[in-house]
Structure formats: structure tokens, C-alpha cells
Amino acid sequence: MANVPGNLKYTREHEWAKQEGDRVRVGITAYAQEQLGDVVFVELPKIGAKVAAAKNFGVVESVKAVSDLFAPVSGEVVEINGELPQKPETVNQDPYGKGWMIVVKPSNKAEWDQLLTAPQYEEFLAQGGH
């Protein structure tokens, strides 16, 4: 079974979200990177860009597939992982750590509660993950 850290929240599109004070760090899950295979390209928004919950904020491409990235929460992008475009394989190697993608300053705190908890995401994966 894929690694699903208990301190994170999740989307049904396989992003994770981590509360860090008043900000939310975002990446893709271990399950997502495993399904994608070798990641060879990551496209992220610019700092200052606005993202909307459940809307596309970027793209990740593996050798075989193109996959959209979906924001877990709405808000402003305050940080991006500038290393990923040069080292996309980091997403495979450390999806919950060095492979993070963006940090968002949320504009709607209520959205946090809509995200899946770790047990809910595990249950979702157990049912097939889509």
C-alpha cells in the first residue's frame, strides 16, 4: 500500500496539502508519482499567481503521461519549488519532502475541511483511487 502520512490532507486527484501556520504546502502523493512513473517535466505557476480549489495550477509529465495538478485550496502562491523544473525526478524520489510544488496563502479557510483526511484518502485508494 502506498505511503499516506497521517499529518497531511488529500485531494481525490492525489495532491497532498500540509498546514504550515497560515500557509499550505502542496505536492503530489506517493501513489500519484508511482502511477505516473518517471517524472520528466514539472510546470508550476509564478509566485503571486492565484489558484482556485479543484482547479488546475500546473502540469506534471512523466515519460508516458501528462497530468494536470489541482489546487487543494484557493489562494495566492507565495512560494514555488524552483528546483523541480531542473530536477523533476525529485517528485519520484521524495514526493512528501523535497518534491513539494507550491506554498499557498489560503483565501478561504473553510476549504481545508473539505479535503480528505489520511484515513479517507487511504479508503479512496483502496477503492481504486479514481
Partner: peptide, 9 residues
């Protein structure tokens, strides 16, 4: 089979 361990490897 599309891959065993990973396409690049």
C-alpha cells in the same frame, strides 16, 4: 508490460 521498475532505469 509498460514497465517493471521504471522506464528510465
Amino acid at each position: 508490460p509498460v514497465q517493471y521498475t521504471g522506464i528510465i532505469e
